[in-house]
Nucleic acid binder design. Structure first.
Lengths: 224, 224
DNA sequence: CGCCATTGGTGACCTAGTCACCAAAGTTGT
DNA sequence: ACAACTTTGGTGACTAGGTCACCAATGGCG
């Protein structure tokens, strides 16, 4: 059709004409409102999703009821993990939730399989996406095991802050993002506030000392 | 050749004749002694390894020098993650170390790519392997975040014990397996010993109360 | 305005990771 | 056989962080 969505995806722009046509014909664009459960444990996906707009948070519920945040899928990325279970016919254990209104391209299993067979470029796109996700998980594990909470929180605040230096998230949300307890976030933020690095109000944290937060993050090796 | 190695791999036994021939012709069997670094960060792999015998431990070094154990590849499994970086031309950050003498089938990039294109069965094999690894990583994260150390240690001891109910590993080794400190292992094992669940001697832990350990593991939801 | 759900704060307590040691058991060289 | 050294395991004191049981403040809403 018009300026194709395909060009929003780095690895796909090099696709030859015929494959592009197949891909466009064999897929469709879907939209879901914020808050929708995009995929859930026990329901095997049959579409690969490529995000055009919005973000999807992927997390895992533990038996104890708490949740760990695994990673966030941004526009221009794909929900590769759904692919894994799609092709392996395996259900998997993570939830995907639309954090914002989301629009995405849904590629059904048959189209996907077909393209993987036919196009080396598409194959590379898929495997690159995998590779990136997996290294993300590795660094997540590394962070959880070795990094201090204050460092991880500082880094996450910097990541989540908007242009005005504000983070719109409750302590509880930040806690699940980092896989910790709300109380820990409250205490750490109080400490940050005491040092003049942030100001707090209900449901919001304003960063008043980005530089200091940055220094804290840097002071302990590379960040996430 | 003789009874093909292909039948050692569940997902591959259904391969049609011609593909089997391609696979055998385009790959070779390699052996490495215990302790060999099978792959390392910064060195991009150009073979997919399918393990015939032995085990490979995959771990990640952190900036701080400590190591996290990620997972173990057993005979009959493949080092899928090497694949990811192989096809994505990305280096990745984990070490692979042969824990025992290892023999494996090495499939070079060209053969691999060719087979993925040609054979749906091979594709499914690859994606299933991925899927399994990824869910493993998910449960690892879950365990790290939510499970108590004593439960994780008990579960690991049961896993590692040989037929005589003995685990041949130093406290330090157990510590890196679980991503914790040696002292924690020492203390937890002392407690297990006090309760009569294990007996210790240098470099060895004998399980004398499998049932009790099992109960501890079960008492807190499913295990790893 | 008063009720109630959401959000944040706090102290007491426990688990686990860290640091700085030391002691016991093997190993090696002479 | 013995001394020196390395590897392995043990311990106490301390800190970080997770848990529990609360309560207080805020803001939405009838």
């Amino acid at each position: 059709m018009d300026a194709s969505w395909i060009d929003k995806f780095n690895g796909l722009s090099r696709l030859p004409e015929d494959i592009r046509a197949d891909l466009e014909a064999g897929s469709q664009i879907v939209s879901v409102p914020a808050g929708t459960q995009v995929f859930a444990p026990g329901q095997s996906a049959d579409n690969l999703l490529l995000l055009l707009d919005g973000t999807v948070r992927v997390q895992q519920k533990s038996e104890t009821g708490r949740e760990v945040f695994l990673y966030r899928v941004h526009a221009g990325e794909s929900c590769v993990l759904t692919t894994a279970c799609m092709l392996a016919f395996e259900d998997y254990s993570a939830d995907g939730i639309a954090e914002t209104d989301v629009s995405a391209v849904a590629i059904p299993r048959t189209t996907f399989d077909d393209l993987v067979a036919k196009s080396p470029v598409f194959r590379e796109f898929v495997f690159t996406a995998y590779s990136r996700r997996i290294t993300d998980l590795f660094t997540l594990i590394d962070d959880i095991v070795f990094k201090r909470m204050d460092v991880r929180l500082a880094s996450r605040l910097l990541e989540l802050s908007d242009d005005d230096g504000a983070v719109h998230a409750t302590h509880a949300v930040l806690a699940t993002e980092l896989g910790t307890a709300r109380e820990v976030i409250s205490r750490t933020l109080s400490e940050f506030q005491r040092r003049g690095w942030v100001e707090q109000s209900r449901g919001e944290v304003r960063l008043t000392g980005r530089a200091a937060l940055d220094r804290l993050v840097r002071s302990s090796g590379a960040q996430s």
